[in-house]
Amino acid sequence: MSRTISEIRAEVNGAEPKKRAMSRRKKDTVSFYLYILPFILGFSLFTLVPMGFSLFFSFHKIGLNTYVDESYTFYGFQNYVRVFTDNNYFLLALRNTFTFAIFRNVFCVVIAMLLALLFNCKMPCKKLFRTFIYIPGVLPIVGAAIIWRQLFDGRASLISWALSGVGITVDPNWWLGNGGLVSALIMSVFMGIGQTMTMFLAALQGVPTAQLEAADIDGADAFTKFFRITLPSISPTMFYVVMTGIISSLQAYAEVELLVGSLAKNSMTISYLVMYYYKQNMIGLGYSSAIAWLLFLIIGACSFFVFKYSKKMVFFADGGTL
């Protein structure tokens, strides 16, 4: 612990250092909480309070159709039971959500890794190419979804047409019909690759060159070098990418709503289901809150397990943890 100026000054002035240090620490505590007050306020007012309400709603049956004059009847776990028993939408959405999250991240990470390895080579105009790759990912989601919708549109699906050029036949009406989830997946992967690649590129700068050169001298091939040296040393970044990627894609909503919307019921995700019930009528408030809380619990459980086992999977050069 380094001493602060005022402590030193206090000692020089002959005051009792311990007492001064104590008051200093108290003062520090007060100012720390004052400085982080915006976060505390924001978090409690706009996260904790709404979550509390959501939990309250999920255990109640909400009677009237307005926010001014509604009635709440305690409903126990009925909303939760109904989520599983009324229809199979929840289970369908659960399956879709996990399929989406897993495939999105697998494709995104693998393709982004390959691109990062390519752009890690010496070449001219690197920055420009990199920008071209991440630009589709920052377009406003509404605009992007419209463009993709047009590319998939069954009346003249450019993508089906292009695929038939390489011998793959896909019914043009499938994309925005039964294949809605696949379309959302393609769009999402396409938009996510740029950012992931940029992170991998930065991580690749930290790969120890001395080890790579030593491996070269020992005659190791490119695969061995990648899996034995490069991958372990970028594993913290990899972990972060996969972790945040999965959490955000478990919440996928805008992609699905804007791209396929009501066209394909069997491509809905959990977030979509929540909004769907909510928008139908406000009596669905309790029901949709129950689904939202189930999603929250699922994401919480996933995060818990991933963090618990992360130490075994991630290699930290300095022995640190996340």
Binding site: M51, Y67, L285, F296, I299, S303
Partner: peptide, 19 residues
């Protein structure tokens, strides 16, 4: 807080702002 699903807070927030 960066990992909480937005959809859990979105609907009650809407209800509060509406009120």
């Amino acid at each position: 807080s960066s990992m909480l699903p937005a959809v859990v807070t979105l609907i009650p927030s809407y209800a509060i702002w509406a009120r």
